[in-house]
Design a protein around this nucleic acid. Structure first.
Length: 892
DNA sequence: ATTATCACG
DNA sequence: ACGTACGTGATAATT
């Protein structure tokens, strides 16, 4: 697109930087680069600048800055801007870098001694108007609207900087009934509190507009003041005449400042991408870096690929020998599958990097050829996502060789915040751009298509193995710096294979049982539904919180307990408070319960059963949680109902895969509290665990100051249990109060007493928060890290959340470490002992197996031993086991 | 794509 | 005065 007219963009640098700074003020601590420099203002300034460049497409640009506090205005009026508080350090340190960024953008910036940015802008705007420019002035300061003309638009930033409001003369007329020049008169009459100059007493915006409509200007008012009828306002006007003229003079933006730039100097030379790239690197603007690379790529080549092409060999049945022999040395491998669910996604290609040579193919069947199969079973592999590759190869009948480097896993250990599972995106996070994301190559949503027959597909695969290889040494070195090599080599890496094996094994589902439940639930739901309609007096969608809210709180006029941001809350906690007021409540609660079971568990589960083996094969996400726990998807087998009997019956549908076998389950008892007892070193807590006491009862004795366990009532124990949970979660009086229904004051007292009774725990909690503030992260027993950038935030909520996280993560994370160790050892033991038993599921603190009935006693012995001894803590670990014909029956 | 709800540890 | 318990995933409704 070419410009038919010349367009000048004038930006009030200080004003916009202030707006930009406060737009992201609540995240100011999140925006710091590796040198500790705050970057939030630069960041949002840049976003706004890009938007403007795109919208306006200017030929000329200038960013004007204030030169300092003293100007000709302070000479005239010493108190001008006198009440302004000092620019915060977090912002002022950003100005030099902001100017540097402008240079990289090819944009001229300018300041002039004794003048404000406004005056530079006013002067240049006037000059540009004479030369026939279209001018846009961008600022956060409304005073500049006085400069609006037919040629000049003033854009005021709103909502931080994400939106702008454009002031043309027409818009100003519409809004105030004044012309732009009268804005100056208005300022003179009203004054300006933020610039700290006075106006006429008792004259505000409304009065000023009325006066100016009648008299035109301040001069006009005083010319005719004698004719004005007697009033308080007239007295004030006469009294403050001098002030009014002075303020008008202060408000008037100069259009004749002695600037040393002219329009020619503002010609935009365009962005210097190389310099901008290194600037982004300096600022740690990873998002902008990857944008930059994509844009450059799109602009510089017709194939829209931003990466240098790789010289590869396309493998065929005929040229397999070119791969050469396998000597067990390290190769980089990638298996491409089309779809997230690798248990069923078609394998569509693969890539190998061996001895600096790239081999790629869109014929995965080739992997079954002896040369390739042997290579993959004998070599040492570097991969991205070992688990995914293992399952994919397993489906081709290949037993994947040991893995040395797993890019996905290592990257997750280094930093588990925003760890993508897309190779390209993740490489970009590590400032590596010689590979694109799948989304970039394949598209997303409805537009997604994988060009398996095109060279770009093979190129993409080659770039994937190249990226894995290129990132290896750097990331492994970082792992070492973090003291995480052991965590990687002895826990996460072997675990990925154990998880793959568990997923492949799957768990058998009794489909008939589920179908039977489905028709039972269907009948009962229909019945309750009719009752609810009757009680409500009309039919509506019970599943819609919005419609339900209208029925309950408007039609039936039940009291509103809580609101969500979109309307009435109808959550269980609310409905329970309404119980007894109307019989409809009980029915809704029951309906909710049953429809949850029906849709999520009965029907949801039936949808994901594999027809071939009547099993569900979940996928564990090993690189997602910020604490180190696993999660389970498609289906989620870590949230199968257990607390309510009705829901627990779902577990009857999980059965062994062979007749004569049983389900066996083992769980750690209070592992998180035991971990806390260990890492806090609290003697009282350790003592309780060492003597095998009931921990909640013993906590109750402490906080209620009892002498004997016999004095602990069930209610005391319940409250003590809640306190223990609270401690693990990073306690707050509010949370505890809410949970056990006591006042905040009482909760606070509980916590105080708790900390007096367990001083070691108290010391740990304050110590870990302090440590987090100092080093920016916390660690588990095995050096798993969690970064807490918000721990020093000025925003109370963000900071408090980070503080609780600092207390909780080492506990939850260490417990996760421990069960992971147990799983690896357990799998090894099953193999070594030649047992038929299979480990199937992990649910955070429990492991679920299937085994021939006769193996159960052996298994029980073995699992207890392995889980008990997974780590050596200052307190014993306790394991409880059970078995039965279904998962439901594997309970005490 | 986001929100409310509810299932689990 | 503020306004929260920690970690997840699936579903249906709504935008």
């Amino acid at each position: 697109m070419t410009n038919s007219t010349k367009k000048l963009l004038l930006i009030d640098g200080n004003s916009v930087a202030f707006r930009a700074f406060y737009a992201l003020y609540n995240q100011v601590e999140k925006f710091t680069n590796h040198d500790g420099l705050h970057t939030n203002a630069i960041y949002s300034f840049k976003i706004m600048l890009d938007k403007l460049l795109k919208q306006i497409d200017p030929t000329n640009i200038l960013v004007a800055f204030d030169a300092g506090r003293t100007t000709f205005r302070t000479e005239k009026y010493a108190d001008y801007k006198g009440q302004r508080s000092k620019t915060p350090q977090e912002l002022s340190e950003q100005f030099p870098f902001l100017r540097e960024m402008l240079i990289d953008y090819g944009i001229k910036s300018y300041d002039l001694k004794n003048y404000e940015a406004d005056d530079i802008i006013g002067t240049l705007a006037k000059e540009a108007e004479g030369e026939g420019f279209q001018i846009t002035i961008v600022t956060g300061d409304r005073d500049l609207t006085q400069l609006a003309t037919d040629q000049t638009t003033v854009a005021i930033t709103k909502k931080g900087v994400s939106e702008i409001e454009e002031y043309t003369p027409e818009h100003i007329e519409e809004k105030f009934g004044l012309n732009p020049r009268q804005i100056i008169d208005m300022k003179g009459l009203v004054g300006d509190t933020s610039d700290n100059y006075p106006g006429v007493t008792k004259v505000g915006e409304k009065t000023a507009i009325k006066l100016l409509k009648k008299y035109g200007s301040i001069e006009g008012i005083y010319d005719q003041i004698d004719e004005m009828r007697q009033s308080k306002m007239k007295e004030h006007l006469i009294e403050d005449k001098e002030q009014a003229f002075m303020s008008k003079d202060l408000a008037r933006i100069r259009q004749d400042a002695p600037i040393e730039v002219d329009i020619k100097d503002t010609e935009w030379s365009g962005i210097d991408y190389e310099k901008l790239e290194s600037f982004y690197q300096q600022m740690d603007f990873n998002r902008f870096l990857s944008e930059l690379h994509q844009n450059q790529g799109a602009a510089s080549s017709e194939s829209a690929s931003s990466v240098a092409p790789i010289d590869y060999t396309e493998l065929t049945a005929a040229n397999l020998t070119e791969l050469g022999k396998s000597d067990g040395s390290s190769i980089t491998f990638h298996l491409e599958m089309d779809g997230e669910n690798y248990h069923k996604a078609p394998t569509i290609g693969f890539a190998i990097l061996k001895d600096d040579k790239y081999f790629v193919s869109n014929q995965p069947q080739l992997l079954k050829e002896p040369v390739l199969k042997e290579l993959l079973e004998k070599a040492t592999l570097d991969v991205f996502n070992a688990k995914r590759n293992y399952v994919g190869l397993n489906r081709l009948g290949i037993q994947m060789a040991p893995v040395d480097f797993d890019l996905l896993l290592v990257s997750y250990l280094l930093n588990n915040t925003d760890n993508s599972d897309d190779l390209g995106k993740l490489a970009h996070e590590h400032q590596y751009y010689q590979v694109q994301s799948d989304e970039d190559v394949y598209g997303k949503g409805a537009k997604r298509s994988v060009p398996v027959d095109q060279p770009e597909f093979l190129q993409h695969l080659a770039h994937k193995v190249q990226a894995i290889h290129d990132l290896k040494s750097r990331l492994m070195a970082e792992l070492d710096d973090h003291e995480q090599t052991e965590l990687y080599e002895t826990i996460e890496r072997p675990l990925s294979i154990v998880l793959a094996q568990m997923e492949i094994a799957g768990i058998k589902v009794d489909i008939d049982r589920l179908m039977q439940m489905r028709s039972e639930f269907k009948e009962r739901l229909a019945e309750i539904e009719q009752q609810i309609y009757q009680e409500a007096g009309e039919e509506f969608n019970i599943g819609s919180p919005k419609q339900l809210g209208v029925i309950l709180f408007e039609k039936l006029k039940l009291p509103v307990i809580k609101k969500t941001k979109t309307g009435y809350s109808t959550a269980v906690s609310v409905l329970e408070k309404l119980q007894g007021l109307n019989p409809i409540i009980d029915n809704i609660l029951l309906y909710r319960q049953l429809s949850k079971l029906q849709s999520t568990y009965v029907e949801g589960l039936l949808k994901v059963v594999f027809k071939e083996d009547s099993k569900v094969h979940t996928r564990y996400t090993q690189t997602l949680t910020s604490t180190g726990r696993l999660s389970s998807v498609d289906p989620n087998l870590q949230n199968i109902p257990v607390r309510l009997e009705e829901g627990r019956k779902i577990r009857q549908a999980f059965v062994p895969s062979h007749s004569g076998w049983q389900i066996f389950s083992s769980d750690y008892s209070q592992i998180e509290l035991r971990v806390l007892a260990h890492i806090s070193g609290d003697e009282n807590m350790q003592e309780a665990f060492k003597t095998g006491a009931d921990i909640h009862a013993s906590t109750a004795m402490k906080i209620f100051n009892l002498d004997s366990p016999d004095e602990v009532t069930p209610n005391m124990r319940r409250q003590a249990k809640a306190v223990n949970f609270g401690i693990v979660y990073g306690i707050s009086d509010f949370g505890l109060a809410q949970n056990i229904g006591i006042t905040r004051k009482a909760a606070k007292k509980f916590i105080e007493t708790y900390f007096e009774s367990f001083p070691g725990v108290h010391k740990y909690m304050t110590g870990i928060v302090e440590l987090a503030k100092k080093q920016g992260y916390v660690e588990t027993l095995f050096h798993r890290r969690r970064y807490l950038p918000e721990i020093n935030s000025k925003n109370y909520n963000l900071r408090s959340f980070a503080e609780r996280t600092a207390m909780n993560s080492p506990i939850q994370g260490s417990a996760a470490d421990i069960i992971k160790i147990a799983m690896i050892r357990m799998q090894k033991m099953l193999r070594e002992k030649g047992l038929k038993a299979k480990m199937l599921l992990q649910v955070h603190d429990e492991l679920i197996f299937e085994a021939p009935k006769e193996e159960i006693p052996v298994l029980k012995e073995l699992v207890s031993k392995v889980m008990d001894s997974a780590v050596d803590l200052a307190v014993p670990l306790k394991v409880e086991s059970a078995s039965g014909d279904t998962w439901f029956d594997a309970k005490k």
